[in-house]
Simulated scan of single mutants.
Amino acid sequence: MLVIEGLTAGYGGAPVLHGVGLHAAPGKVTCVMGRNGAGKTTLMRAIMGQLRASSGTIHLDGEALHGLPAHEVPRHGVALVPQGRRLFGPLTVAENIEIGLMTRRKGRAVREHVLDLFPRLRERLDQQARTLSGGEQQMLALARALCLEPKVLLLDEPTEGLQPSMIRLIRDTVLKLKATGVAVVLVEQRVEAVLEVADSVAFMAQGRVAEVLPAHGLTPQSPQFATWVGV
């Protein structure tokens, strides 16, 4: 269980998150929604240790993550697929995957499992990451994250700019991970995509979690989407 309590963080002394609390349970998908500037990406960065929290706590299975240097957080079982993917463009697909394996010292079996999830990447192992299509780059970013065999997977706008077939692939992968007990925290703006996979939806506004609701009680016409997301 990922448990965030009272998390405050920001940039250059200007707070963006104000006492955020959020729980992400194994085998569940927690979607985080909100307008631009609500603090969603800042929350992802704070969980990963890329942004130092000024107060509050982050625990995974009772182990404190807050205060750890950023390079240590993935070794504790948290992986991030960031907005914009941030691949090593000049490196090949195989080399990007190897970097993911090295983080938690995983071996060939994990590599093969990841490539089975994304067979198109197996066909492009010697191709530079920057030459892949947008959908293929998103596959690679997700594959690299899964090389950590994470307990918690953070996805920041993973379907942005993708064609429908790639969006379906991302959805199916999230559902497979959910079935294996991975806790998924998904930042997403597309209401339909959220309702297809989510167990709960946390609505953020002005750096706070304004409301958390079970997804099964929501529809695309639910007023919360207009109130907190503007759709």
Rank of each mutant, 00 (worst) to 15 (best):
V209C: 02
V187C: 08
A226H: 13
V229W: 00
Q138M: 04
R75M: 13
A46T: 15
Q163N: 01
V78K: 01
R35T: 05
G135Y: 03
S133M: 09
I4Q: 02
D61M: 11
D116A: 14
R105G: 15
H216Q: 06
A183W: 14
I167D: 08
T57Q: 14
A145E: 01
G217L: 06
S54M: 09
E95M: 13
A183D: 10
D126N: 11
G207I: 14
G37N: 03
T8H: 15
A46F: 05
A25Y: 12
V187N: 04
R108H: 10
E112K: 01
L140D: 02
A64E: 13
D61A: 11
A53T: 02
N36L: 03
V20D: 11
G6V: 09
G77N: 04
F118W: 09
H216A: 10
A143W: 00
P90L: 12
P26G: 08
A25Q: 05
A94R: 08
L186C: 02
V187Y: 08
M139C: 06
V174I: 15
E123T: 11
M44E: 00
R124F: 04
K40Q: 13
V32P: 12
S200E: 14
L148E: 03
A70D: 01
V174Y: 06
V187E: 00
R171Q: 15
A215G: 05
H113E: 14
E196R: 00
P220Q: 03
V152D: 08
V110C: 13
A193F: 15
N96T: 03
V81A: 10
S222C: 10
S165H: 12
H59C: 08
K178H: 09
P26L: 12
D61N: 09
A109M: 08
A70Y: 03
E72V: 14
P119N: 02
V209E: 06
R130S: 08
G62Q: 03
K178M: 09
G6S: 13
G13N: 07
L22H: 07
R104Q: 06
T227H: 15
Q128S: 15
Q50Y: 15
F225G: 00
P15C: 05
L80K: 07
F203W: 10
G161C: 07
G49N: 04
A64N: 00
D61L: 10
V209M: 04
C147H: 12
G77M: 10
G49L: 07
L218R: 00
R35M: 05
V73M: 00
L140P: 01
E211M: 11
F225A: 00
L60E: 07
A226N: 10
